[in-house]
Lab assay of single mutants.
Amino acid sequence: EIHIRTNGEEQARKVYKMLAKRNYDVKIEQHNGQWVVTAS
């Protein structure tokens, strides 16, 4: 499982799309105001 911390919604969405293209199961979560993308 991969966790990627991003500094904002826009970046989180870019990372989300990139990983989704590679057939990862991707989730975006917010932790303490930080956007974290989780891929498995």
Rank of each mutant, 00 (worst) to 15 (best):
E1Y: 15
E1A: 12
I2Y: 08
I2N: 02
H3R: 14
H3F: 13
H3K: 14
H3T: 15
I4E: 02
I4D: 01
I4M: 04
I4V: 07
R5Q: 07
R5N: 05
R5H: 11
T6H: 04
T6Q: 03
T6L: 14
T6K: 03
T6I: 12
N7H: 09
N7W: 12
N7V: 08
N7G: 07
N7P: 06
G8M: 10
E9G: 04
E9K: 09
E9N: 03
E9S: 05
E10Y: 10
E10R: 13
E10N: 09
E10Q: 10
Q11M: 11
Q11P: 03
Q11F: 12
A12T: 02
A12S: 03
A12I: 02
A12M: 03
R13G: 03
R13L: 10
R13W: 14
R13M: 09
R13T: 05
K14Y: 12
K14T: 06
K14P: 00
K14Q: 09
K14E: 08
K14S: 06
K14G: 04
V15S: 02
V15P: 00
Y16L: 07
K17L: 12
K17D: 12
K17H: 10
K17S: 09
K17T: 11
K17F: 10
M18G: 04
M18D: 05
M18W: 15
L19T: 00
L19W: 05
A20S: 09
A20P: 00
A20W: 07
K21F: 09
K21N: 09
K21G: 10
R22L: 15
R22I: 06
R22V: 05
R22D: 05
N23S: 07
N23F: 15
N23C: 15
Y24H: 05
Y24W: 12
D25L: 13
V26S: 02
I28E: 00
I28Q: 01
I28V: 06
I28H: 00
I28F: 03
I28T: 02
E29Y: 15
E29Q: 10
E29H: 09
Q30E: 10
H31Q: 11
H31K: 12
H31R: 11
N32T: 04
N32G: 10
N32H: 07
G33S: 05
Q34C: 13
Q34D: 07
Q34L: 10
Q34W: 14
W35E: 00
V36G: 03
V36T: 06
V36R: 05
V36Y: 13
V37E: 00
V37N: 01
V37K: 01
T38K: 09
T38R: 09
T38L: 09
A39M: 11
A39G: 07
A39W: 13
S40M: 10
S40G: 06
S40E: 05
